[in-house]
Amino acid sequence: MPNSAMGDHVSQLRPALHEFEDWVYPDGFAHSLFEAFMKNPHDVGGEPDAPAVFEEKQEEQWELNTFVTCEVLAWRGIWTSEERRRLGNVDVGRTQYHGLPYYGRWALAASRILVEKRYITLGELIERVAEVRQRQSVDGALTADPRTTGDGTAVVRNRHHAEAVGKGDPQCFAGQAGDPRFAVGDPVRVRQLPTLFYTRTQEYLRGVRGTVAKVSYETVLPEDEAFDREDLRPKWYYIVRFEMTDLWEGYAGLPGDTLQAELSEMWLEPAD
């Protein structure tokens, strides 16, 4: 059973569960079905796929602009990058996750955070999008042309963008998690916690035994950081080493092949 990354429901969830009826009754709703629906779309490790051509790509000007806009919003304390990852890679759902361009999801994530945190209204955004579309020139190039420059002093910003200055992230969380529970060489097991809304602990690691390879740092859990919770206590992180043969039934490589991932203390328990 090493993991359920190949679960039948997950493979059917793109674009939709192929059932005759597109409504469902709560009785007999299987646990495996619930897990499939809750699985984060970004968590693709181990899913079966056929070989594809590995391509390079030229970057569009708007892709660079979008990347920079998202990073500048974090620089100025409007969100953290973990909020961006949740909004762009998980909250969009499976269909949009696979159907939209990579930086398209970044642009939608930034749009959503500004509306949800009440920096702009959705009405304003809709009007501006319509107005910008009118402006395109013959060659299609667009430039940003703000009408005014706003007063930034009254803007609500997070603590992180100020508290991390001169320290870095995760260094800004150092010394807040107490003593680490595990040490290098300790056998650990990834806990079988439910997935609800957001995590960075991959499903393919759940329940698998590994060994601590490095005690990494302290930081706020991504499950908290992704929801702008700055009030919570940081936790220790560890790089954990797994045997491939423990991860995958019928592993097609060689014994001795390994995989490492970096996990929070919340997701680890001692193993024998």
């Binding site: 409007i78 361009p101 642009a107 749009s111 009408r147 002093t153």
Partner: peptide, 19 residues
């Protein structure tokens, strides 16, 4: 997406989120 990014950036600047 090009249109959306331009609209977003303009609004962010007008609201003082960044310059």
């Amino acid at each position: 997406f090009e249109v959306l990014e331009i609209a977003l950036r303009e609004l962010a600047i007008e609201k003082g989120l960044f310059t």
